[in-house]
Design a protein around this nucleic acid. Sequence first.
DNA 1: GGTAGAGTGAGAGTCATTCTCATTTAGGAG
DNA 2: CTCCTAAATGAGAATGACTCTCACTCTACC
Lengths: 152, 152
Amino acid sequence: MERAAAALDGEVRLLLATREQRYTGQRREIVHALAGLGRPATIAELLAATRDLPQSTAYRNLAVLADADVVRRVSGPDGFARFELSEALSGDHHHHVVCESCGLVIDAATSPRLEAALAETARLIAEANGFEVTEHRLELVGRCRRCRAAAC
Amino acid sequence: MERAAAALDGEVRLLLATREQRYTGQRREIVHALAGLGRPATIAELLAATRDLPQSTAYRNLAVLADADVVRRVSGPDGFARFELSEALSGDHHHHVVCESCGLVIDAATSPRLEAALAETARLIAEANGFEVTEHRLELVGRCRRCRAAAC
DNA sequence: GGTAGAGTGAGAGTCATTCTCATTTAGGAG
DNA sequence: CTCCTAAATGAGAATGACTCTCACTCTACC
């Protein structure tokens, strides 16, 4: 973990450098909080997970980090913005399962076979509509364990 | 189209009735505007496409229609809410292609094979995480024809 | 044709997010 | 080490999509 954290910092610093941005203490705190959580975090969760991080700084730095491709913005169904480390950094292509009741978002891996089918579909649709498709996003919507238990 | 419009109205009226809601003139205007557009529409587009529809009424009626499953709310990447006829009404299971540059969202059909793979994936992931998955959403992100032309 | 309850609409209110700007900090030049 | 310049910070104001309020209107049923 020690080693991984250092490697992470190195990559983030590099990504920020290409945008002429510094890797400050607060940005480091945000990145490590996201890395530790392992699922998309809301601003509120980030503020709770860090020390002395003002809201305005959190928003500003997340915008900078998103612009440098360190972080990705995920918009949930509840209107709250959520953030996670970019796939380039985490090295982990995944999709999301969201709870329509409480808004919880967790990561989910997919099979190579599904990914192949998705890529093929993306290619066909892009061709048919004049789009240049750069990314696909799969979202499974349902109810999480906790909400299912509570609703019964 | 005459016939189709009448059938649409009948179904909408039925769906609203189960929620003890009326099918008023303004709701009809909204439904037909959505049917005519054929892709998710923003509030602004709806206001432009209808006569004398105040913003507050639009929002309120869209909430009612969404609650009655006549309409589905789609949250794009640009933070604007978009609305389309529900799959139950349009009878058309489809996914979305969104332009990351201008926010345009269009519909796209998928192949039965991809749908089967998606359903299987959803089942596996649901099982592994204690979720009950009721719906899946696939979003292809890229640049539309117009934005590609403009950016060159 | 009365009336109870649903629908309407103009404007006020809410709240996540963004902007402003005075102050602090970081990092290179000398 | 000490300037110096530009970036970063943070408290609060501003923005804007969306929701709520409430007086008024309409509709369906008696």
